[in-house]
Design a protein around this nucleic acid. Structure first.
Lengths: 218, 218
DNA sequence: ATCATCGTGTCACACTGTGACAGAAGTCGC
DNA sequence: GCGACTTCTGTCACAGTGTGACACGATGAT
């Protein structure tokens, strides 16, 4: 990796850290791009070359997570029930976080506190999650060998799995949990969701309600 | 109702209709507030007195839906399983739509087409849904008599119910479905979700995974 | 060293959204 | 109808986000 790319990555993280600190200090809305840029000594224009928007600061970890899940889906055996595959994806995300550097862990926790203080930002995060859901649903539908466009079952599989992750992330037992506690709660929530589903529900093809029942296609 | 309020409502709907048409014609991003305001002969400043933002045009129906669900939750018997209550809420929303005026139905379908064409807008809609979820989760937690702050079960109940509504809304079988078809698919999706859950799952208290099982508190 | 490439800053600009104020229009009393 | 009062609306000014164009300097390959 060349000097250029290392420098770029360093700037990127510098911007991110400066922004998170400013957001936590004085609030998201009251922090301007100009301030963020100023505090890492770049021009506002350059800021937008690293992050497409102020909002995207809050979403920086999404891409990585989606990538992990997508890759997990690809690596799971073809016959596996789709929800099981998704859950493996979720756990891969968690274990990736567990192995993250202390700096990344701290960023993650700062972000979590930020979302806690600003419910509006949760919306952003969820909005991004919706795009992710579409792509994952398409991947799941492909695995199931059905048309991705209108397969509600695939969408539901993904939506429910993502809900588990989100609810676990959002519901803290304590005021300022550490990384292990957050991950633990996310894992607990996954277990909770697994326990609430009827075994085999995700093997059923998506048919009209009238012929549900005999349509177990695995 | 005075002349003022009628006029206000008329302007509000005129703005909404003009905006939806412009959005469908030339895209959401390429339509400016100035254009919308111009096409109903008001100043841009006035536009923002009717809609707090350009985005909020896309969210105009959310408030009503949330209100219906909240009210439904209030009216259901206290001992009812929370997910059952939520499903009643969802169906109340559907039946309210069924009874809507032709104009409202058309607006709803236009909005649906708009969301279809612009995945980005789905994010907005979902973001708003997240706020709704928080409030509904608090209401559900209250019904269950547990602390609303960290009850993952309540959040899950709401998240899953809302997922059903959303997935049904988003997955069209045909290119340009009419209101009945959309509502039918939403209903089908609700049925699908009901069928995939283990009976009684939502009666369990939110405890540590270790003492799940004996914790049936209803 | 040299040249092409890429990152950055500067300038200019469009768009969204808000506060302040003045004038127009609706509302209520008489 | 007239006047006083309230509410709505338009104009103006402005902060902030985000983008395109261009020029300059740093980086990387040869």
């Amino acid at each position: 990796m060349g000097l250029r790319e290392r420098k770029k990555e360093k700037t990127r993280l510098a911007i991110l850290d400066a922004a998170l600190d400013l957001f936590l200090e004085q609030g998201y809305d009251s922090t301007t791009v100009e301030q963020i840029a100023g505090s890492v000594d770049i021009s506002p224009r350059t800021f937008f070359r690293y992050f497409t928007s102020k909002d995207s600061l809050v979403l920086w970890f999404h891409d990585h997570g989606e990538e992990i899940i997508t890759e997990t889906l690809r690596s799971r055996p073809p016959g596996e029930p789709p929800f099981t595959s998704m859950v493996h994806g979720l756990r891969a995300v968690l274990s990736d976080m567990q192995d993250s550097t202390p700096q990344d862990a701290e960023r993650f926790l700062k972000l979590r506190r930020l979302l806690d203080d600003h419910p509006h930002l949760v919306g952003l995060s969820v909005a991004r999650g919706a795009e992710t859901e579409r792509r994952l649903a398409a991947a799941v539908a492909e695995r199931r060998g059905v048309d991705p466009a209108d397969d509600r079952m695939s969408h539901l599989v993904v939506a429910i799995a993502m809900s588990a992750l989100r609810v676990g992330f959002e519901c803290p037992k304590r005021e300022r949990p550490d990384l292990g506690e957050v991950l633990g709660q996310m894992e607990e929530t996954i277990v909770l969701v697994e326990g609430m589903l009827r075994p085999g529900w995700d093997l059923r093809g998506t048919r009209e309600p009238s012929d549900r029942g005999e349509a177990l296609d695995a």
